[in-house]
Design a protein around this nucleic acid. Structure first.
Length: 840
RNA sequence: GCCCGGGUGGUGGAAUGGCAGACACGGCCGCCUUAAAAGCGGCUGCCGAAAGGCGUGCGGGUUCGAUCCCCGCCCCGGGCACCA
């Protein structure tokens, strides 16, 4: 980005022309166009870059999670951007060279569904909506630097998605495997785990089924430990619950790998367990029914039973499989294994309660000390062997597995040990014998990123019969989506791109023979995992992002968005940034320094969404109250992270306040007269200090409360105090208008102009509270008797402890209160509080 | 089941160990007005005529002092959930 801000004079003069005939009624919607134009002309919200002499200015980079263009902006958008814009404007006014980026997350399923429904091109729907939203953002007065703008569905953007994919592919971080995937029969696509809610498709609510398919993955599991460890950097800067959720999602658990020899197989079966101390109690093994291992181990005699069971499992829906109160089922595989410590021959089962994708896909079952294993053992008649004496009743009789601590029993040489020490000893023995070792497993899965959809980034791989998977060379990127010759609706989950025969047919970049393009597109979370790297230079053509721009602005200082992205988007972005760090493309390993989650806007306790109907329409609210009042209402409603019930808040209250400010700015004469009123000045500076502290803590609702107090103080001073001409009134009003511009930019600009200034008020800076004025001469001291407030006395601020004690104890009123009671103790916290403790 | 939040007037919320209820919404009263709206001003936690008492989900604890810290419980919201 290159720019230097233009001089104000010429632009401003041209805009002054029609201002003579200004209305005397506050009309918030009448001033929108005027200030939109001024900000554009003055380039008020453009970041300054290195070439224009601003290299010394501290920089700040604010990003709100970019919007998906589903129609026009709604109430939820207005909330996020009211908050992020208040923050951006504040940081800017405090002197930061600020970059506030905007783009669109414009690939994704809704465009395709809309296109199918209305029989049009997804591009048309997408880009029309983007234009609508862009205009709405401008009319909402959001201080974006519009030069950052791009859309992920632009070939100039998704080209770099492909490029990044190829770098990960080369690094072994992108790979293909067949997996049982979540399949939505209605949308005809694979879904990520995060897109499956309670066993149903997040989008259409259809029951999701399991289905094997060869899919592309990113190896996020390779970063599990670092995703966990690097959270240390985020502690205290990200919401606590987001970190907790991510920790949960990664699900680190430590224990051991144990190898069980299996008859008729060279290699042992490896299991993961968190309870190596219970190894002597492992009375059978269970292998995930849908794993290749189960298929391999199955004996010919059991084949028929196994196949029947497997078929039943695979066709069962995710809901059924996820219900954990369902009876345990399984089949014996007809082979036996050897418990490595006890030497006991134990049977091997296949069951659906063991997950193929977690751990090794096989477990050692210890029914005495694991409830699930116990239920399975009882259902299939497998033996139970108690090996930890916890003092609880025998699980064989109660049907309740004992999971507590205790002493090892029936455990060979380890008998008698405390179970935690015994576990360590068993691991040591296993390691020494080459039969196992300490191990850590994670719940986190690899990122399934291929989608059988049209409106996404084509995967830049060519399938060649001779050469296999061949990356598309960088100089042939982007692999553009075909604009014609495809059919969106395909049967049986085939990608729409398969129907674009001309597009699919290509030549192998390696051998030149005929080959086929990969027909899957990428999950849109790929697009959103790095967009913030591109804002500093969205037109950059030599790579996905401009290294100089990234060095200048990244990492993102303030990231604002919804809590729903805690384990999805935020995890993916963290992963990708770490991968790019390892590839030497970035010098930082966490993308977002500080994260703020805003709540949702609800109505009468009900969430608003497209399916449930947007109960409140943003544009209607704006036309009724004006953009500023809507913004103020959003921010004043409560702490940013709390939900806002629109039924509980009042845009009319905001309108009333804004028009009070507006009238105040019109009531001040051009010239001040007399001496500044000292009481008012102190009040003004106290309120500036209060608002500033609240802004620093991101407690915007409290900051607005201080501005409202300031408004009242100034109104009162004008009407019944030192008068509108008093310099303190002007000083306070100017401070008010400057601070107001963070929340109500249109009204603030208008007020600033009415006060006789040239725009932009955003360039006037945030007012500084004068510390000298914050000190008062006297202060109200609270006097408590036995912890209850009984009296308030004015005392000098600088009063000493003993002096204050004396003063209070000798005051007539206090002596009357104490009466004949004995004073036991006097706690003095000069100058604010004295507590007299008397015995009863 | 496990892991996080949260519970304060009629309502949204302030106060993070020291005056509970800032700032608003709503309500009531007054001024202005022929009238209404707007505006401006006052009152508004509960009980009580008042004096005063009570009061931050419930019970305990620590402290001179607890909305705030600790222990137990109840209720509400969110996340994860057959993860071995």
């Amino acid at each position: 980005m290159t720019n230097c801000p233009p001089p104000y004079s010429t632009v401003w003069r041209s805009l002054m022309i029609n201002d003579e005939a200004r209305s005397e009624v506050y009309d918030p919607n009448a001033i929108i166009d005027k200030w939109m134009t001024v900000w554009d002309e003055l380039r008020t919200f453009e970041a300054r870059d290195l070439t224009s002499g601003y290299e010394e200015q501290p920089r700040s980079y604010v990003v709100s999670m970019f919007p998906y263009p589903s129609g026009d902006l709604h109430m939820g958008h207005a909330e996020v951007y009211s908050i992020s814009d208040a923050l951006a404007r504040y940081l800017r006014m405090r002197g930061a060279n600020l970059l506030n980026g905007i783009g669109w997350d414009s690939f994704g399923l809704p465009a395709e569904n809309a296109a199918l429904k209305r029989n049009l091109d997804p591009r048309e729907w997408t880009y029309t909506n983007i234009e609508t939203q862009a205009e709405s953002f401008r009319r909402l007065g959001v201080s974006f630097d519009w030069r950052t703008r791009f859309h992920t569905s632009d070939p100039e953007y998704y080209r770099w998605n492909q490029w990044l994919f190829l770098r990960l592919f080369a690094a072994g971080l992108a790979y293909r495997k067949e997996a049982a995937v979540n399949w939505c029969p209605t949308d005809q696509t694979v879904l990520a785990n995060e897109q499956v809610v309670a066993g149903a498709c997040e989008r259409c609510g259809t029951r999701v089924i399991q289905r094997p398919l060869t899919q592309w993955f990113f190896r996020t599991t390779a970063y599990a430990q670092r995703l966990l460890d690097d959270m240390a950097q985020l502690e205290g800067k990200w919401p606590h619950e987001v970190l907790a959720m991510q920790r949960n999602w990664i699900g680190r658990s430590s224990g051991a790998h144990v190898d069980f020899a299996v008859e008729g197989r060279d290699r042992p079966v490896r299991v993961f367990t968190t309870r190596p101390d219970t190894l002597f109690g492992a009375t059978f093994l269970v292998v995930a029914v849908d794993s290749p291992l189960a298929d391999e181990l199955c004996s010919p005699e059991q084949r028929e039973a196994f196949e029947a069971y497997r078929k039943e499992t695979v066709t069962s829906t995710a809901i059924e499989r996820l219900a954990n109160d369902r009876p345990k089922t399984g089949v014996p595989l007809g082979v036996s294994a050897v418990n490595p410590v006890s030497g006991a021959r134990i049977p091997v089962y296949a069951a659906d309660y063991v997950l193929a994708e977690y751990g090794t896909g096989a477990i050692m079952a210890v029914p005495a000390h694991d409830q699930r294993d116990l239920e399975f053992a009882r259902a299939l008649g497998a033996p139970v062997r108690v090996v930890v004496d916890t003092g609880a009743p025998d699980p064989t009789e109660t049907g309740v597995a004992t999971t507590g601590a205790g002493r090892l029993v029936n455990s060979g040489d380890f008998t008698g040990m405390d179970n935690s020490e015994g576990g360590a000893a068993i691991i040591e023995w296993l390691s020494g014998s080459g039969l196992g070792e300490r191990a850590v497993t994670y719940r986190l899965r690899d990122w399934l990123l291929s989608r059988q959809r049209y409106w996404g980034t084509p995967i830049p791989i060519v399938h060649c019969d001779a050469c296999g998977l061949v990356p598309v060379p960088d100089d042939q990127l982007p692999v553009r989506l075909p604009e014609t010759g495809y059919t969106l609706r395909q049967e049986g989950g085939r990608s729409p791109l398969e129907s674009a025969e001309e597009w699919v047919a290509t030549s192998c970049p390696s051998c030149g023979g005929s080959a086929r393009r990969d027909t899957d597109t990428m999950d849109t979370f790929v697009d959103s995992s790095w967009y913030f790297l591109r804002y500093p230079n969205p037109g950059y053509t030599d790579g996905p992002f401009d290294p100089a721009g990234v060095a200048r602005w990244l990492p993102v200082n303030e990231y604002i968005g919804g809590r729903e992205h805690s384990t999805g988007h935020l995890m993916y972005a963290r992963f990708l940034v770490k991968a790019l760090y390892d590839l030497g493309m970035l010098s930082f390993n966490e993308p977002f320094e500080r994260l703020t989650n805003q709540g949702q806007v609800i109505m009468n306790g009900k969430a608003m969404s497209k399916s449930l109907g947007n109960l409140v329409n943003l544009q209607e609210q704006i036309s009724r109250y004006g953009p500023d009042a809507v913004r103020v209402t959003m921010v004043f409603a409560g702490p940013v992270e709390e939900d806002i019930d629109w039924a509980d808040v009042s845009p009319t209250g905001a309108v009333k306040w804004l028009s009070r400010v507006w009238r105040l700015t019109g009531d001040l004469p051009d010239q001040t007269a007399g001496e500044a009123d000292p009481g008012l000045r102190r009040a003004v500076h106290l309120l500036i200090a209060g608002a500033t502290a609240a802004m620093d803590d991101r407690r915007f609702n409290v900051a607005i409360a201080r501005l409202m107090e300031l408004t009242s103080a100034l109104r009162k001073a004008t009407d019944r105090g030192p008068g509108a001409a008093n310099p303190a009134v002007r000083e306070g009003t100017e401070a008010l208008v400057r601070m107001l511009s963070c929340f109500a930019p249109f009204t603030a600009e208008e007020g600033w102009q009415r006060l006789g200034h040239t725009p932009s008020v955003s360039d006037a800076g945030w007012p500084e509270a004068d510390p000298a004025l914050l000190v008062e001469e006297t202060i109200t001291c609270v006097v408590q008797v036995n912890g209850k407030v009984r009296e308030r006395l004015d005392v000098p601020t600088g009063i000493g402890e003993s002096e204050l004690r004396e003063f209070v104890l000798t005051s007539d009123r206090i002596r009357a209160l104490i009466g004949t009671a004995t004073v036991d103790r006097v706690i003095v916290r000069a100058p604010k509080l004295v507590n007299i403790v008397s015995a009863r």
